[in-house]
Design a protein around this nucleic acid. Sequence first.
DNA 1: AGCGGAACCTGTCGGC
DNA 2: TGCCGACAGGTTCCGC
Length: 272
Amino acid sequence: MPELPEVETIVRELNSAIRGRRIDTVRIFRADALGDMKPRAFRNKLVGHTIQDVERRGKYLIFNLLPVRFMVAHLRMTGKFALTPAIPKPMRHHRVWFGLDNGELLVFQDARCFGTLRIVDALEEAGQLSRLGVDPLTRRFSNPWLAEALGKSRASLKSWLMDQGKIAGLGNIYAAEILFAAQLAPERAADSVDAAEAVRLHRATRKILRKAISKNGTTISDFARVDSKQGEFQNMLKVYGRENEPCTSCRNPIVRIVQQQRSTFYCPQCQR
DNA sequence: AGCGGAACCTGTCGGC
DNA sequence: TGCCGACAGGTTCCGC
């Protein structure tokens, strides 16, 4: 489901809603997300801990707990966190209930069961995090860094942008929208991008992500915010999901191709 | 290095 | 209406 702007939206909403809440109960309805950890161990590691705050790294959510401990969550395609008043029975896709000390329930739900919840005592134990590249909203994501990093890879621009080990947080929707904004073709090799084009890509990345966050992300089929309101960025998509529709800039039809088994949408006229 | 393919599991939608 | 294949915003294997 979510890419960086959606995860950022969820993190912000969680912070305003559950910061300082203590986890009193944990109920597990389906344990797929827990990996090797047994449900009982998972529960015992959380109960009695207070949620200090929630942060984002790439597309991962990190719940910082006290006494010190971390729950590292990845929503994959369909994972969601929702906050509700206490309810008697789990809904269809509810996987884990976290009962909070104010009587509310933090619900982890996930139709496809791809999402993951890992508990570690130190973040270094969460190997996935150490493999993440630069977060595009931090100062490390600079023009010179981008130009140099692109020059070291012959991957297509689309794959390069989606490689979490390079830039952390972009997925299929935003990679497409960023390339359209930068007027670069998705099949272009990363190391074919010149200095001026790298500047365009850098600007476009920042611009699209900031805009999407300000719109609370993109709701297409199943992204839901914590409060179940929808994002608004889907109304601003220029190429994603718009095969055969006229390009907003040149009116020629948007084309869909497949790269790395994923759909890529772009305008062959505007993107070179 | 980087790509294609498959796998994880479920739901939805379009075509026949 | 029913069945079947394609597709879905992600990640991580494996093999070439």
